[in-house]
């Protein structure tokens, strides 16, 4: 591990920017290309890069598998929860107009929440899948 100084320092410089870029993609998705799916994948890629360079054990200390599993499930819950919230407020399932007094603001809030759900699920699922593959030992056959 010690002889790969350039890789380790380079990754350490890059990872914060990758995570920040993912958040930019997430919140700028209304105005330019981007959204929850892309942001989730980029966010996951940042952690996967960390795991590849510093080892799976270090990555699992920074981001425990349980937290990842909770993320994957929480995103779907957020998404469906927004749907039920709109129903509780008197609208149809996932019709965001009722979330605020102004339909347009309601739509913006609804899209924000739903994209957050997508981000969390995609991030959680991708990292969980990576952990499952990387944590597997090679079996002699």
């Amino acid at each position: 591990m010690d002889d790969r100084v350039i890789l380790r320092v380079g990754a350490k410089i890059l990872i914060p920017f990758i995570l920040l870029f993912a958040l930019y993609v997430q919140f700028h998705g209304d105005f330019g290309p981007g959204g929850g799916f892309q942001a989730g994948v980029i966010f996951a890629a940042g952690f996967i890069l960390y795991a590849l360079v510093y080892g799976l054990g270090t990555a699992k200390r920074a981001l425990p598998p349980t937290a990842v599993y909770v993320c994957a499930a929480a995103g779907v819950l957020i998404y469906a929860g927004v749907g039920y919230l709109t129903m509780a407020l008197g609208g149809e399932f996932l019709a965001y107009n009722v979330l605020r007094h102004d339909p347009e603001h309601g739509q913006e809030l609804g899209i924000l929440l739903v994209e957050l759900g997508v981000l969390v699920t995609v991030f959680g699922s991708m990292v969980a899948i990576f952990y499952a593959f990387a944590g597997r030992r090679k079996v002699q056959t």
Partner: peptide, 16 residues
């Protein structure tokens, strides 16, 4: 919807 990116508005709202 009030969102300039039509792909986002279709993805998250029209076809949510």
């Amino acid at each position: 919807i009030g969102v300039p990116n039509v792909v986002t508005s279709v993805l998250a709202s029209y076809r949510g």
